[in-house]
Design a protein around this nucleic acid. Structure first.
Lengths: 336, 336
DNA sequence: TTGTAGGCGTTATCAG
DNA sequence: CTGATAACGCCTACAA
């Protein structure tokens, strides 16, 4: 009934608690027969060493935290999967925190886990443009941090991203090659890390093609589907774009919905390409051209960096960037 | 540098640890000014009460575990999101464990978290047909358990599912209504809870339409895409179905891929409907008819049940079923 | 090879 | 209102 502890187990066996403890730790010397007897009894009694006592003593929790802006999103699902896998391989447990793109929540979560709950943190950020003094808490506590996909420029930690600038440049160039002359860039927030870098790729590609980027064609949306709908309606009416480059999957999907409702033919009247981790982009109507980030690998890589730091006993990860290649998949939605 | 603890904080303030501790607990009496002074100093020093010490003392971890078979799956993503949300509202932290449909891993995870790491468990199972004595550990430890979607018949705990039988019956009837006479049922494992119940709905609908279920038309697949492809190829060649009812999203998608490769027209040559939580089923080519489970709500409900039990101090959840309604969305893939 | 003892950081209890 | 103290369960020097 009540959780059994090392003391009652020791009593039941007529041994001391230290001996019992030793049976569970790999290293210490202990008679093989004694050990076996202890483990067997523990098994039948369902004894497990209390992790909070162990953690308290060793100052180790064997736990990491993943902090992400959203969850119902293919990119993050796959990335988290990669992290979870790596964590498992290293014998670590994984806490998940979803900020809903809310800076306050991010700050609150990070503050909460600085109490020893975790040994390391992997995060994709939500609070650009705000102060992130709460991250100093991690540093102060010696809890290593790794960013993936979305990061803060001003925080020293390893950042795992995809080659967003190059992909963005390539995607824009692709639309131009297919004959587009008015390519709109759809983005959630053009000032945050990924939105900004992807924007730069878009702008530079236009420039290299002898076109000035038209500010009107840079359409900032939100994450709210009705708001997105409104922005699209307004932009299409006014701007008459013949190409859409969506900085995130959600906006590519919204474009599809909009076109379907408005009777705009893709790719005849409008060519579309977007960042997306959708595994069935090829089954859409029409098949969606995508820039696909190596989501799983990004998660796994971020985790690998973190565990390397943890193993080495480092208090922080190096302030460096690891850039993984995305893949540009040309499909029907942008066919010439 | 080193994690600051209550003792040094107390010294720095010229107070006792008890007083400092009181400043962080809501209840105890403490001078308002003293409290403020403590909290301010704590803030600047970045002090957070160590959770392992607290947990050890209170035997409370404020943590739950989610155990699921897979991750890169819309249904589970949404369900986990629902759970995470509910956990957050209750001030709980959320550990994630992915079993990859592996019974051994499931057993291992459950055993691991019985060491006090979590106060409750929400799970969707992977090990049907095996023994689940490891779940008795939870009971022994007084850790409440709630199943969602996939459960064990022989374990007493609350089960949150969708009305799979009715949906399955309705989906099958829908295909028959549309003129199908040879409806195949694609399933991963027809002997596990959901595969079995959904099979029953299919069989009963056929029977009520005066058709005997043909065992050949019940196609068991795996989770491996190549294996699925092989099964489909074999089945189509031999059985010439004119309707497909897929018990899980992955099989509906596989059917689409197969048909696209083989030039089978949907819905003209083959009508398709499947269980799916895909939010863009309407954008597929052709739009996929679906049975959509309330994934988010299932997760949220399972979590609500768990937290009610935790709040009430109950050691286990009641052996009851909570059944939420799915929605049948008729789209082009099954049009008559 | 086994046992003893102290302490990890916190908080509830009790005394002041 | 504040301070001293014991206990949560485990692990590791150190002693035997």
């Amino acid at each position: 009934m009540d959780a059994i502890n090392i003391k009652v187990l020791a009593e039941k066996l007529g041994l001391s608690t230290s001996t019992v403890s030793r049976a569970f730790r790999g290293n210490s010397d202990i008679n093989a027969k004694t050990k076996q007897r202890i483990l067997e009894t523990a098994e039948t009694l369902g004894y497990q060493p209390n992790m909070y006592a162990s953690s308290l003593r060793d100052q180790k929790s064997k736990t990491i935290a993943i902090v992400v802006p959203e969850f119902a999103n293919n990119f993050f699902s796959q990335a988290i999967h990669g992290i979870e896998r790596e964590a498992r391989m290293n014998g670590y447990h994984t806490l998940i925190y979803v900020t809903d793109d809310d800076y306050e929540k991010e700050a609150s979560f990070v503050t909460q886990i600085c109490n020893g709950r975790v040994e390391g943190v992997i995060m994709s950020v939500s609070g650009e443009g705000h102060r992130h003094q709460y991250l100093e808490l991690l540093a102060k506590r010696g809890i290593p941090l790794v960013f993936f996909d979305r990061y803060y420029d001003d925080v020293a930690a390893t950042k795992v991203t995809a080659n967003d600038y190059e992909s963005s440049y390539a995607a824009t160039k692709h639309l131009l090659d297919k004959g587009c002359s008015r390519v709109a860039y759809l983005v959630v927030n053009k000032h945050v890390s990924i939105g900004k870098i992807r924007l730069q790729g878009y702008v530079d590609a236009l420039r290299d093609y002898g076109m000035a980027a038209d500010d009107d064609l840079i359409v900032e949306c939100t994450n709210d589907r009705y708001e997105i709908r409104r922005r699209l309606a307004e932009s299409f009416g006014r701007l008459q774009p013949d190409g859409i480059f969506a900085a995130v999957e959600r906006l590519a999907i919204a474009t599809y919905r909009f076109c379907s409702e408005e009777g705009i033919a893709i790719p005849e009247n409008l060519k579309v390409i977007g960042f997306s981790s959708l595994e069935i982009a090829d089954l859409l109507n029409p098949a969606l051209s995508t820039v696909t980030q190596p989501a799983y690998e990004m998660g796994a890589t971020a985790a690998a960096v973190l565990f390397r730091a943890l193993k080495a006993g480092e208090k922080r990860t190096g302030n460096e960037s690891i850039i993984l290649p995305s893949v540009l998949m040309e499909r029907k939605s942008s066919a010439g």
